[in-house]
Amino acid sequence: MSASLPIRRWLAKGFACAAAGRLRRRYPDWAEAVLSEHASLSDADNPLGWAFGAWWASLDLSPGGALYPLLLALSLTTMALYQWSADESLMTLGVVGLLALVLGLLSPRRFLLSGVLVGVVVAGVNAFEALSGIRPAYETMPRDLIHSVRWVVLVLPALAASAVGRQLSLRFLD
């Protein structure tokens, strides 16, 4: 037996389980179908390729699934650019809340991930300024790292907003 075979089996099982996990809420019968089909395949049937395909399909079939990674990246970029172009203000809080709300609405299952990632961007950008010394033109004083890291507190409103988005999605969209 090739040494890679157990790894391939393990990966195939992981993809099949991940696919079933994504499908379970909306298509419970099809989630079980993916698992049973995977368990029925022999090594000659290329279960890894099959399971990866099933996982890929589950991205498309889960609510907001295919769009989520793209919109998450777009949201984080928007947040970072906004923070780079403006100082912290109530508007910053508004942008954080809006982006986290939209992401929570789009993918209720990943509201924690959305809230945390959107919430840490401001602290991340500030920490980058403090560590690198590179800062936007309007920033006349260098930042200190402690001051920067305390903006992690924005994770809390971001989480609250993504949780609201999640509730709205579960109530009205699902």
Partner: peptide
């Protein structure tokens, strides 16, 4: 068809 295309169609 691969499973990635087949299953969404079947559903």
């Amino acid at each position: 068809l691969s499973s990635g295309t087949l299953y969404p169609l079947l559903i």
